[in-house]
Design a protein around this nucleic acid. Structure first.
Lengths: 226, 226
DNA sequence: TCCTTCGTCTATCGCCTGATCATTAGCAAC
DNA sequence: GTTGCTAATGATCAGGCGATAGACGAAGGA
């Protein structure tokens, strides 16, 4: 068993550990043992502690590995680029976003961290909402001659529409990598279809949501609360 | 500490344990310890083993407690009842379904069991697809004079549309009980809006998906597979 | 009041886990 | 070769885990 004791340069060994740790903890969850990870790496468990001071530090590194460099700074530019048709921009963004998050590692690490009670997910989604969803709503409103978001702030129900689209895409990953179900071959086409359906269906709803009631008509708002 | 040694009838004690176990494992995950559970119950850890032979048995009981009696057999009747308008049926079903699954216990146990790699989720969703989604598609087709599901079997892309609606509703629970984010007060209204948007947007897509190519035109089908 | 019953507790076992430390052995430089 | 550095190992610790066994003591009948 210890016949092949291989001696590697530290940075190379560390890369091997990180790569395997990502896969391992994605599969088995963060409760899985360091001994099991070491076995998969073909090394002894104490060696892990030469490269990481603790299991938590290793897990932290896994988070970084999965989440880092997945946020594409161009996303905001894509949505802002009014030289392109809105439909094209929206589809381009969501296809690219889907490609970023619809991976085994992302989906599973994301759900594990969520269930662990870390605020990581909430913080990420807050950024997503402020940077992306706000832009989507702003551009859709502009496209259809609705009030700007400065005049009529984005309402909860409008965000709800974008959440629904986000959910539809995200859930494709859940189905595949959490439930182990089959998903369509051509995910890109499905995402495009979902984005299209969003753009077709949402404007009429947003029109009613952004319509300010006239001063002497409070019936609509009061009826909704009842 | 042991001053209040309370002696309860076995069935009553067991009910207390089950009730607390559901909450406890939902919060902390199934990796949480029996000692912690016992502490929350104000009893000693070995006492749990008088009522359940093992931790796994207790967890199994938690699954039963959360999932059992949540499947409403009337759901299928609701969707089949052609005396009511389709829109009304769809909204009624999804509002009721949302009420069943959008709870702290259901959402968290569901995700924990999914990440644990149990086939429980996949089996449940297969039933859901066969019993419910098939009906939804069948009725939508009928409403809009599209081919029956006997003539043109339901395609993957059609199921995809229903998955998207399911995802939008399910994700409300994820946002609240996994990420800890705020969700709308009036979930029922949101669900109704999502179902309405589905019914408004889907028929036109389904029309193209169910359109059989004429005998001498095979380009569409072949193109779809390519 | 004593005795029996059985729900509950104290004590503990065996195992596994994350983490530590002294020792071993591969590789480069000379 | 020989030597020096250090990557990698083997042995082990302290604490926590699920689970077990026997002692304790409250409730009910005699």
């Amino acid at each position: 068993m210890s016949g092949t004791r291989k001696r590697l340069p530290p940075d190379q060994r560390k890369r091997l550990i990180v790569r395997e740790a990502v896969l391992f903890f994605c599969e088995a969850g963060f409760g899985a043992t360091t001994r099991e990870l070491a076995k998969r790496l073909g090394i002894t468990q104490p060696l892990l502690y030469r490269y990481f001071p603790s299991k938590d530090a290793l897990i932290e590194r896994v988070y970084q590995e999965v989440y880092l460099n997945r946020w594409n700074p161009h996303w905001e530019e894509i949505l802002d680029d009014r030289a392109r048709p809105l439909r094209e921009r929206i589809i381009a963004f969501y296809q690219d976003y889907a490609k970023a998050i619809l991976t085994y590692e992302w989906i599973r690490v994301w759900m594990f961290s969520g269930l662990r009670g870390m605020d990581l997910n909430a913080r990420y989604l807050t950024i997503l909402r402020d940077r992306i969803y706000t832009r989507v709503i702003r551009e859709v409103r502009r496209e259809h001659g609705l009030p700007s978001i400065d005049d009529v702030p984005i309402g909860e129900r409008e965000f709800e529409l974008v959440w629904a689209l986000h959910a539809s895409i995200f859930y494709i990953g859940i189905r595949k990598w959490i439930y182990g179900l089959a998903i369509p071959d051509d995910v890109e086409a499905v995402v495009a279809a979902l984005a299209t359906a969003f753009l077709d269906g949402v404007p009429s709803v947003m029109r009613t949501l952004t319509a300010r009631p006239s001063p002497h008509d409070t019936s609509r708002r009061s009826r909704r609360r009842a």
